[in-house]
């Protein structure tokens, strides 16, 4: 039996809007994945520590506060420091196009902006985990 893909879904920093992130959690659950939701107002450190203990395949961060250029790079750096770059980082929220390009070049594997259909997210997560392969 194939083990379910494990995804940690997080809200980072001063951002209290969690409707979207809950919808995404449900979408991934309904696609048969194990989803760990860590709640509001987490730090980048919290997210990376939790992701390591939970041994997730993917971290998904929802950012609606505009602080994406701060938190995403920090998460990527922490993963590097902790020798955990096999964990894929994706994101979603309100992110200007130019920033999205910059974030992807830093190593964010995929970004889902407004009006992304649910299947797009599920397919992307599956494809990214498959491309990474077993670890």
């Amino acid at each position: 039996m194939q083990a379910p893909i494990r995804v940690l879904i997080a809200k980072v920093g001063l951002d209290g809007h969690d409707r979207g992130v809950k919808v995404v959690a449900r979408i991934l659950r309904d696609a048969g994945m194990d989803v760990i939701y860590t709640g509001l107002h987490r730090s980048s450190e919290d997210v990376v520590n939790a992701a390591i203990q939970e041994d997730v395949d993917v971290i998904g961060v929802s950012m609606l506060s505009g602080a994406h250029m701060t938190h995403f790079p920090r998460i990527l750096n922490l993963l590097k420091e902790k020798d955990a770059t096999d964990i894929i980082v994706i994101g979603g929220g309100v992110i200007p196009d130019a920033d999205a390009v910059a974030l992807k070049s830093m190593g964010i594997a995929d970004l889902f902006l407004q009006d992304t259909p649910p299947d797009t997210i599920v397919n992307s997560v599956r494809a990214l985990v498959e491309a990474r392969g077993q670890r």
Partner: peptide
């Protein structure tokens, strides 16, 4: 019971233990 997936939220209450 249908998709086999899960949403696990126990960590939400345990954030103070992080780190």
């Amino acid at each position: 019971p249908f998709s086999g997936g899960a949403i696990m939220g126990d960590r939400i209450r345990m954030n103070e233990l992080s780190g």
